[in-house]
Design a protein around this nucleic acid. Sequence first.
DNA 1: AATGAATGAGAATTCATTCAT
DNA 2: CATGAATGAATTCTCATTCAT
Lengths: 202, 202, 202, 202
Amino acid sequence: MAPKIVDKEMKRLEIAAAAGMLFGKYGFDKVKVDDVAAAAGIGKGTVYEYFKNKDELIHGAFQVLMNHMAEALQHSVDLSLTPLAALKKLSLSMADAMDHFGEQYGFFLEYMLLMNRGQTDSEILQGMFTEYRRLVAGLIEAAIDARQVRADVNPAHVAAVYLAWFDGAIFHWMLLPNPNLQQMVLAFWDAFEQGIIQREES
Amino acid sequence: MAPKIVDKEMKRLEIAAAAGMLFGKYGFDKVKVDDVAAAAGIGKGTVYEYFKNKDELIHGAFQVLMNHMAEALQHSVDLSLTPLAALKKLSLSMADAMDHFGEQYGFFLEYMLLMNRGQTDSEILQGMFTEYRRLVAGLIEAAIDARQVRADVNPAHVAAVYLAWFDGAIFHWMLLPNPNLQQMVLAFWDAFEQGIIQREES
Amino acid sequence: MAPKIVDKEMKRLEIAAAAGMLFGKYGFDKVKVDDVAAAAGIGKGTVYEYFKNKDELIHGAFQVLMNHMAEALQHSVDLSLTPLAALKKLSLSMADAMDHFGEQYGFFLEYMLLMNRGQTDSEILQGMFTEYRRLVAGLIEAAIDARQVRADVNPAHVAAVYLAWFDGAIFHWMLLPNPNLQQMVLAFWDAFEQGIIQREES
Amino acid sequence: MAPKIVDKEMKRLEIAAAAGMLFGKYGFDKVKVDDVAAAAGIGKGTVYEYFKNKDELIHGAFQVLMNHMAEALQHSVDLSLTPLAALKKLSLSMADAMDHFGEQYGFFLEYMLLMNRGQTDSEILQGMFTEYRRLVAGLIEAAIDARQVRADVNPAHVAAVYLAWFDGAIFHWMLLPNPNLQQMVLAFWDAFEQGIIQREES
DNA sequence: AATGAATGAGAATTCATTCAT
DNA sequence: CATGAATGAATTCTCATTCAT
């Protein structure tokens, strides 16, 4: 009865993945639906069987990227460590993730621009950012409670500062690959944790 | 210079400025040459008298943006202060500049994506970044010499970390305007200078 | 006939009927094969089991419409009446048929356009028109013989005039539903039979 | 200052005329915008300079057709004649117009279908029909006053009957060109004026 | 020098038809 | 037999660029 059994969800993901790769490399406008079809090894019309139009394709591809990223960072908060150590470890995990998703970062950026310009709905990304801010702010609060972190820092603000830095870093690194991400993260963590100032030695 | 030349140059800048405004708001691909002409109050054909094609227009508009930004930050390093105080003042100046150029930041980002994708030459921006890194690294070195900053920090790395942060901050702020730029910069400077850790009180 | 054959023929008619309904409402080009399949409660591919292609579907649907119309008018010539009375009764029957098939009249018109443009074979419709003209011309000839109708009228021409009117009427009525078909037919018959002129009263 | 002086209104009409010709011959959907451009001797893009999209082109072409028809019938009511004679003369003028616009009649029909299906606004055509009905009803009233026409006919209904007939006639003539329009009109007028019935001779 | 009318290459999208299951 | 997933030819529309005035 049922002809050609196809895992539609699977295929949708495949197309979205192919699209995401191209979007990251060339940008939304440079990538033609034809290109996506070719990359996915299907006909152009088939893309439209799975995505109503190019916009949906962009959203879908972004969703897939987000899910991959979320998975990658899923277990990066190690609760067996002290809060500060957990935060440091998270930093290194983020460096890894950045390395891993670096290619796709252009996609991420461009999607963000789309949202910022109100050309698409920004809830997905805002939600994700907010969630991460909460996670980090929680760690910082715990660190304050554990007297690892100064009581006079504002956890929410510091969390925002912390996360913003990673995006800035990858951004600059895309343009100037030196110092590399590893070096950047270490230098960042050093400054962030200890401060740069010279203290009285005594 | 003959006045004609001045006029031409002037008009070129005007067109570039109009284009930059639109690019920032809507993105390169959404902005039509017609729109730029209308915004500049001239005919469509006239745009091509001043810019060979749309790409040149993008570059020209970016140049103008860069020049404006450079001007704005020109005098933000106050040599009468100690190096560390100068660095802090620079941070606040950057917050101001960010506020001022926030609208155009989308343009900046998109142009960067273009470069990163090798669709255009990245020397201008790389040059600018490098210059700023040198400036900041210089301040940090001076601060080390003045024993304001720890001797074991790597000036180049820390300069990169420092500057990256600002781009990350504006980036996040575009998406989530809370905390605002002022709050972010203060929280950043506090952490960056002092570190977040709780020190032995004795 | 084997029952299978009956079933096939039955299903073909069902599909054609569903198609005809849609064609009448939306026009050939607006109706997709998908729509027809959905309306007939079958899969898209199945339509092609019964009709070689969309054109065949159009023809088939038209055939079905014609058959229905022919059935409806089958017994409308009452031979027990005088020829003129029979013609009047036919007029009223046509008004009824028009009311009944009004919805499908768009289909009829569009199919006629197709033929007129030589995009399809017009024999079916021409045959039908010719048959009706003959029928009416026969009635008029009989009426002349019975001295009910003037001997100097040309039966063929008057038959053409008579039938043309009904199509004109339904056509106008589609656009301006006032006066209604009933009123139009009565006014038509009155003028057609009696003439509109004022005669000498004496 | 002003470059390439072009009579835009003129050109719009030319394009619309070219489009109308094609629409009449082949139907809206069979005619590609490319075809219209080619027929008008311009580039495809130029069509879009004068018409926002294909729908506008259809409307525009229809407007032009209507204007031409209106012009052709403008002076066909001869007020120096008696009302009945004027009506007869109008009939012959309409036969001429039908001959002249016969080619375009398919366009007319198809546009009407579009309206009837609510796919476009029908006011233009309804307005035109209503105007003609009023004109004819006026003539009939005048003829009644002049005792040329029976006092018991309903002018509005008879006007509707009269006009509907012409559309029916051209419609049938398109399919069966025999009898020709001239013959049809004469037979129609004879029946309409005198009635077909045989009167008492005495 | 300035203009905007003309252009056509190029892109998104639709949909009749095919065919593997 | 029935199905609907896959397909690409065909079509509309956009917009950077040219060029006559």
